[in-house]
Write a protein that binds this DNA or RNA. Structure first.
Lengths: 332, 332
DNA sequence: TTGTAGGCGTTATCAT
DNA sequence: ATGATAACGCCTACAA
């Protein structure tokens, strides 16, 4: 049952009255924006505490025209890589002045626009977006970047002049290509690409790059989900594939594929080699553990912080790609 | 007289001027709060569109003293169960009037308090909290519930008069107890409990209940993480345990344990049976697939929505526990 | 050093 | 039906 509010409704006026000073003094004492006698400041603080005063950030935001908030829009909460990105951003800004608020676009273009408008209406100081889609997210991205410093993270919408920070997907796929070339017998285990769909920039880049530099006997595109990994593996088996190297567009796909292959009695890596991309936490817990391309999440979140803090100044590069790293484990 | 608009944002004054009406009319036309001639309304809307007007929710919030926002505070983004809860809440409120904003407490009591104060300062209409801890989260919960309708979700802090919506952990553990009793040879596979730590209510309830109704040869407590599952399994093997039924306080623990056991060459379920709790997505992708207790997330989020919408009225029960369901899969 | 007053953008209450 | 105006809570020139 909702309790009667105590601190709700306590304003600077109440504190001022209680402390016997003006509201300006209260404001200054609490924000420390101007020097004042320690004695008075202490008195004000005690009054504030006694009354349970909590600053109303809405009032402050309206006045200051800034909210010390950055909004993060992610496609969904189900992909553990997005979660780890959210975790990374949250932690990165935790000791900064800004709070990070996260909203899910639920893999839907309209919901994505709504999320952006919601953040914009709330006057966030900056927006970090992981766009759903290479084309349908253009509208949301434009709306965002038209009003507030915006960063594209992990994925981007081509053709927009909005900074992008993410992983060098091409370099990542090249790591896989090289690895396959030097350590796998392509004749006995022909290479099959299971992409996450070309509708996101990451999916697009990864698949295209890999195809351009590696002989692939087969190529499937789906979505960035466990389910698609399972489904893709199933369709391969249904088509009589008995041995292959499965290069997957993301760890979630790889894990889904492994799950299906093992359930059908196939063995990994002797029958099927499986390679992922991202380096999510569960990739090292899967059995067999997943060979994958690890994205440098720390570096990327650091770059975002720098980019947003050096706002206006051109000290930080607009677009930065970070080199991922191949982690050889058991699955491939 | 019409006020000058800032160069930054388009305001109601700009729209009013453009449409040749008063700001009151603009507000009414856009929000539809009062009836007015369709013709005028249309004109105003066109002006708004022409100028690219977007309502400033900060101004609205200040005036209306409500934000149509609910805040969700979760311990972290790494546990996939929390992510699925966040996803569930977001989806549930998606077609409602309210936006859901998520913040991570990063498993830290102070960060949790900061997150709550941040949401409170932003005047959220309600707060949904998954408390970090049974004791250290008390402060954050109190602060929250003192100012705004608050719901404890999935976990709770005992002794507080704040509604709780979650799973019937005791019933869930009983399902496991019964299952073990009727289908497992306890002599060859003695039961070992790997709890997630008694510092959260879920961990507490699950471990205590299970211990009270089942003969356990061994009992370890840690945290709700993959790492703890691995570590616990390792310590069991180090102690020479060769066969056992591992009842885990959460799926993440179970998956961590399985990972370690398999890596050491043990087989599941013939040597070790492993049972989880929660029903996260990856539980059905693990190999072997995880026997677990599935929480009814849909029902729980629905209950939260009802509880918060019927705010003030006592029509909705304050605390509700939902019965989970045992899903027998391969691991146990 | 401290106080006064004005305004941030919006909606609601009055008038008309 | 529409318009003028007063708040909402806060910060910050400007005054004293």
């Amino acid at each position: 049952m909702p309790k009667k509010s105590t601190s709700q409704g306590v304003t600077v006026f109440d504190v001022a009255e209680h402390a016997g000073v003006s509201i300006a003094t209260v404001s200054r004492a609490l924000s420390g924006s101007r020097p004042m006698s320690d004695e008075l400041r202490e008195k004000v603080k005690q009054s504030a505490a006694a009354l349970g005063y909590q600053v109303n950030l809405v009032g402050r935001a309206l006045r200051q025209k800034k909210t010390s908030t950055i909004g993060l829009v992610i496609p969904d909460f189900e992909n553990p890589f997005f979660s780890s990105l959210a975790q990374g951003i949250s932690r990165r800004f935790a000791r900064s002045e800004a709070d990070v608020l996260v909203a899910s676009a639920d893999n839907d273009a309209e919901a994505e626009v709504r999320a952006v408008q919601s953040f914009l209406g709330r006057q966030v100081d900056a927006l970090v977006m992981i766009p759903n889609d290479e084309s349908t997210s253009a509208k949301a991205m434009k709306i965002a970047s038209d009003s507030v410093p915006t960063v594209q993270f992990d994925r981007f919408v081509p053709g927009l002049d909005i900074p992008f920070i993410g992983c060098d997907n091409k370099a990542g796929m090249d790591l896989i290509s090289d690895y396959i070339t030097r350590s796998i017998d392509i004749d006995s285990q022909p290479v099959i690409l299971i992409g996450g769909g070309k509708s996101s920039s990451s999916g697009h880049e990864r698949s295209s790059r890999f195809l351009s530099r590696t002989n692939v006997t087969r190529h499937l595109e789906g979505s960035f989900s466990f389910e698609w990994g399972q489904q893709a593996a199933k369709s391969l088996l249904d088509d009589g594939v008995k041995r292959a190297t499965l290069v997957c567009g993301a760890d979630v796909i790889a894990i889904g594929a492994i799950s299906w292959l093992l359930s059908q009695g196939h063995s990994i890596p002797s029958d099927f080699r499986v390679i992922g991309f991202d380096g999510v936490g569960v990739s090292q817990l899967a059995h067999p553990t997943l060979t994958t391309v690890l994205q440098p999440v720390e570096e990327m979140t650091e770059a975002i912080e720098k980019l947003l803090s050096s706002d206006g100044g051109h000290s930080a590069q607009a677009t930065q790609r970070f080199r991922p790293e191949l982690v050889e484990r058991e699955s491939g």
